[in-house]
Amino acid sequence: MKKIWMGAVLAGSLTLGGCGGDKPAETAKTEATAPAGGAAATPDEANGGTITGKVAFAGEKPKMATLDMSANPACERAHKGSPQKSEEVVVNENGTLKYTFVWVKSGLPADKQWAVPAGTTSLDQNGCMYKPRVIGLMTGQNFEIKNSDPTNHNIHPQPTVNTDWNESQSPGQAPMTKSFGRQEVMIPVKCNVHPWMRAYIGVVGHPFFAVTGDDGTFTIKGLPPGTYVIQSWHEKYGPMEQTVTVGAKESKTVEFSYKS
């Protein structure tokens, strides 16, 4: 009998060993926000070049699946009356594509260091959906993750270059601040509690990026004169590239067109 008790205690202590695990999971390691030594440059919006454009969508508008949120009543209640559709492909009224990440892939001076953009970028969990679905960040730029839902979420980015992490966020919990130290286009983010939740984060080493919104347009300002490879990235339709040359105070238009 004594042996049985010893065995049970041994198994229990090893299975539950290390209690006190209310400490949150490890946080992502990040590199320095600003370069060491020397002033970091900011985009010269007054004298620099500007690239504007839109991401068009041609063909039949894809029919998005309705998400089944029955696994969590709080999520289902948030969309009562109008069930949430998947946001994998969102075609705007004007025939453009929402949630496309556009960035300068190459052409910038290699030795130039750029300052992290001002302002706060947020990723909100609202209605058991990530809002917005796609965000852009500069390496080392802090961003805020909020939980506006009355339910638990875990935030699990799945980078291949940056450090992986997975943390929980309960209802009413303070926003968490995170950053990524290395350029990576794109980092998928998921919630394993609600497997339909998905977001993408584009992390680049400079401030020249944009994400298309409800009108499908983008603007990248303050570029030094030069020739650039501009890449657009969509989660379903993938990347497209165009080369464009822009001078000082010059504005160029670029259009990307995806087909269904």
Binding site: G21, N166, E167, N192
Partner: peptide
């Protein structure tokens, strides 16, 4: 796809 829905161990959500 629920393997990491509980981000801590051995406790669950603390």
């Amino acid at each position: 796809d629920a393997a990491l829905s509980v981000p801590d161990w051995p406790l669950s959500w603390g």
